[in-house]
Design a protein around this nucleic acid. Structure first.
Length: 845
RNA sequence: GCCGGAGUGGCGAAACUGGUAAACGCAAGCGACUCAAAAUCGCUCGUGCGCAAGCACCUACGGGUUCGAGUCCCGUCUCCGGCACCA
């Protein structure tokens, strides 16, 4: 009987994952195997995974896929001699929990703890190396106390401010919606058209950090896709801010007075505040932002966004009615949701401005293809060289002038469409004949000299609206006093507790439900002691998650948000793994908050995550998993049937971790077979005799391959390599030697920790397999002494030869020509011989 | 439209800086063991012609560079994800 014989392994004890897994999870708890020595641990390594939102449905297989991938990496780092900290927590505030609570009619304060308990059970079952002593729950007052503290830190530094802004409003559900709940302009819950309502909202001035957030990306070891997504989101464009003087128009002034919009203060000049167009447009000119100052000679008209404050002033009496009607129309359009790529609409204001380059009067229009939120809310229209302007000019018969001539074109070449490419400037006065791109700087200079322009960088990024007119979140720690105005709640009075009220339903006032609870709402002014009211908005869930990684090492501490010493030792995070759906918001907000805390002197670093890798998505049988399709993998079912180790390993075997994989139910049996073989081979392994040299060679090749692959998160190929080794180990009629099997147990341990512990113990070891070092790779043992060389004739494969690893070209050639399959294609001397050492020999004839 | 990513057997997938395409696994077929089945073990398994040896073809499609291309270059198509009138 051989080692692999069925009878022999049947005679040995069968592999029963359920009892082994239970045993070891119990043992880990008792021994504190997964407890990290935060104070004294050597070579600290912080392996962070994005914490889950504890839904009522329980753990999604996607969660487990993400966490297992992180766990393997963390365990691997531990085997490399690091003290690894792998904490986990719950992102439990927010609209999803609240909506679910509303749906089932249960209070989130009762519901969430139950969901968390279920999550914890499933997570513990997954065999993660999590130190549960440092669990974080964002809804815990001990946590959100510090979320509120962070708000105050920003407030102190002038980075939190209040302004009127539009919110998404569902008229049927009578509630404010988060952006992610609006799908194509409709409420994700009831499908009704979402409206915009104007409300006072709190914002964080993330735009102040746009440049740094962008520049720092270059130095981060992150997935390129994630960095690209952030770069696009921040959306830097450089160009110029140009002022177009208003033409004297006697008709305009009275309207300005009547409109009540102050345009006379002129208090802030150009460039003082990029995000605030009201201030940016001075009394007597329209400011625009352009990335193409080189085309300014072709600016034949201007367009203001319908909400632009200068519209009233510029509109002539004759056009007032039409302009007002148009603005009302666009307002209605906005309520319905803005449609992109519809036919352009607009209206002439009757007013004119002066093109500072040509000195010509050009008409000023109002149109909704210009957005108030970007730039200055006004543009110089260059129909010859901008697609949108071209479409608009064509429709309204506005002049189109060519100012850039591409290859083979002249000033007179007609424009059938906008030409946005490069070329030579034409119809551009003294700049004629110059290269368009190179003249951007020169023209900006030239305009700047007359006071008409400044070079300017603009960002697509908007300030972060953190207000939510909802119940289930941390109250924003602000009080409004009749005499003192807006007063921040002093740190000593934190947390501002979220009251446990039964009535948390949002209503159609557009104000947070908290406003209805008078005992909470009315309070004393922390400053003068007089009558005051609380801010009733709660903060965005993304604020909770923007700093949780700072909290883990200090979880439970009441005196500080994060301990200085522990933070110094453990942060920034060494490895962060999560979904790319958070590539922009969560990761950007976390970076922003970290930078602010750094600037405030609380942190020594300004980037929170040294390394980030996005994992892929799991689909099932070629289709996306969804509740409605009923094809969601229930992790508990699979773990019951196959065991946790098999399930974990299978998830990692599906495909490249960073790309995800297709969960084919049948495939899991192969992984189970692999573990069964590991089990039986380990039990029958012998100490007698010597290990086989060729098996050892394969072993060391596998040690190298597995280590390399795991550190690159290529778990699927690491597993394949171990399977290959298993096949070598079991080939032939012999019992495997312990020296051949024991290292394999260690290689498998990050993937299948329970079976590895069990076999490690049965082998006669006292402690945990995770407290020994990863097997060392010996390059000498891994070296092949004979290799297979591919032999090509004219680039086509004609045979293979077995040769010594260090064979010379001459010997290889001789051996190759001795092969009949090769020699029959070679007549006479080869013209040329290409020899790639260890790979192939190509004879060119 | 723009920005990412991807197209390889029946299926999930491998392939280091250009060097034997399909490792590993699933499914399928045949065989051993068994009264039988399951499990287990062994063999076969890209397509075409062929008993075989072998030859030809094959990495979405069309070109190119090269002794040699899944990999590099040019062009085309399809799918997935994100952004969407960003001046």
């Amino acid at each position: 009987m051989t080692a692999s014989s069925p009878n022999q392994s049947a005679a040995a004890e069968a592999y029963e994952p359920a009892s082994i897994e239970q045993k070891w999870q119990q043992r880990w708890r008792e021994r504190g195997t997964n407890s990290t020595n935060l104070q004294d641990g050597e070579r600290p390594f912080y392996a962070l995974m994005m914490f889950p939102y504890p839904s009522a449905e329980g753990l999604h297989v996607g969660n487990l896929f993400a966490f297992t991938g992180n766990d393997i990496y963390g365990r691997f780092q531990r085997l490399q001699g690091h003290t690894v900290f792998e904490p986990l927590g719950y992102d439990a505030f927010g609209i999803h929990s609240e909506n679910y609570a509303l749906k089932v009619g249960e209070h989130p304060m009762r519901l969430i703890p139950r969901n968390i308990a279920n999550f914890r059970r499933q997570l513990e079952r997954g065999g993660l190396m999590v130190d549960w002593r440092y669990e974080v729950d964002t809804t815990d007052p001990g946590y959100y106390k510090w979320t509120q503290w962070i708000f105050l830190e920003l407030y102190k530094r002038g980075l939190a401010y209040k302004k009127r802004a539009a919110v998404n409003w569902c008229p049927v559900d009578k509630t404010v919606l988060a952006n992610e709940q609006v799908i194509a302009g409709q409420c994700e819950r009831c499908g009704s058209e979402v409206e915009q309502r104007m409300l006072e909202q709190w914002f964080f001035r993330i735009t102040d950090y746009a440049g740094r957030l962008l520049d720092n990306l270059d130095g981060l070891d992150w997935s390129e896709t994630t960095k690209t997504a952030q770069r696009n989101w921040i959306g830097r464009s450089s160009g110029a801010r140009v002022r177009f003087p208003l033409a004297a128009d006697p008709g305009a002034a009275p309207h300005a007075a009547a409109s009540g919009i102050s345009t006379a203060d002129g208090g802030s000049g150009p460039g003082s505040d990029a995000g605030s167009p009201e201030l940016a447009s001075s009394a007597d000119s329209i400011e625009v932002f352009t990335t193409r100052p080189d085309t300014i000679f072709g600016a034949t008209y201007m367009v203001l966004a319908p909400e632009h404050p200068l519209v009233d002033r510029i509109t002539t009496p004759g056009q007032r009615e039409a302009v007002d009607a148009y603005r009302e129309y666009t307002r209605q359009q906005d309520l319905i949701s803005r449609k992109v790529n519809k036919e352009k609409t607009g209206e002439f204001t009757g007013g004119h401005a002066v093109n500072p380059a040509t000195g010509q009067l050009i008409p000023v229009w109002v149109a909704d293809y210009v957005l108030m939120e970007y730039g200055t809310g006004a543009i110089m229209a260059v129909p010859g060289h901008d697609e949108r302007d071209f479409e608009f000019a064509t429709k309204f018969s506005l002049p189109i002038v060519r100012v850039v001539a591409g290859a083979g074109e002249t000033a007179g070449t007609p424009l059938a469409e906008a030409y946005s490419g490069g070329g030579t400037l034409v119809n551009s006065g003294e700049f004629n004949g110059q290269d368009a791109e190179q003249s951007i700087g020169r023209i900006t200079e030239w305009l700047h000299a007359t006071g008409a322009a400044d070079a300017q960088v603009n960002y697509r990024l908007h300030d972060w609206c953190i207000s939510r007119q909802r119940y289930w979140g941390p109250p924003i720690p602000i009080v409004y006093c009749d005499s003192c105005g807006t007063v921040p709640v002093p740190e000593s009075q934190l947390p501002v507790l979220l009251p446990d009220v039964e009535d948390f339903r949002p209503d159609d006032t557009g104000v947070s439900p908290l406003a209805r609870h008078e005992q909470w709402y009315f309070t004393d002014c922390p400053s003068c002691g007089g009558k005051a009211r609380r801010e009733t908005d709660v903060s965005d869930t993304f604020l909770d998650s923007a700093w949780y990684f700072l909290r883990y090492p200090s979880a439970g501490r009441d005196d500080v948000p994060f301990d200085a010493e522990l933070t110094k030792k453990w942060l920034p995070v060494d490895s962060y793994i999560g979904g790319n759906e958070h590539a922009v918001l969560h990761l950007l907000y976390s970076r922003f908050i970290t930078m602010v805390l750094h600037d405030a002197g609380h942190l020594a670093f300004e980037e929170p995550f040294t390394r980030f890798r996005a994992h892929g998505l799991i689909i099932r049988e070629g289709a996306k998993m969804s509740k409605s399709k009923g094809n969601v993998v229930n992790p508990d079912e699979f773990m019951d049937r196959w065991g946790v180790d098999t399930f974990r390993t299978f998830l990692m075997f599906l495909g490249p971790y960073e790309q995800g994989g297709d969960f084919r139910d049948q495939g899991i049996s192969g992984v189970r077979r692999f573990l069964e073989r590991l089990w039986s081979s380990s039990l029958v392994a012998t100490n007698e005799g010597e290990p086989d040299a060729s098996v050892l060679r394969k072993l060391h090749q596998t040690i190298r391959k597995a280590g390399e692959d795991i550190s690159k998160l290529q778990y699927n190929t690491a597993i394949a390599a171990m399977m290959e080794y298993m096949n070598v180990l079991r080939a032939g009629e012999r019992l495997p030697h312990r020296a051949e099997v024991d290292p394999l147990i260690q290689l498998v341990s990050p993937f299948a920790p329970h079976i590895a512990e069990e076999l490690w113990e049965r082998r006669g070891n006292e402690g945990s397999v995770f407290d020994v070092q990863w097997p060392t790779f010996d390059p000498e043992l891994a070296k092949d002494d004979t290799i297979t060389l591919a032999v090509q004739v004219g680039g086509r494969l004609r045979g293979t030869i077995q040769v010594p690893a260090d064979v010379t070209q001459e010997d290889a050639l001789a051996a190759a020509l001795a092969e009949e399959g090769v020699s029959k294609f070679v007549t006479g001397e080869p013209r040329k011989v290409i020899y790639v050492k260890g790979r192939l020999l190509n004879l060119v004839v």
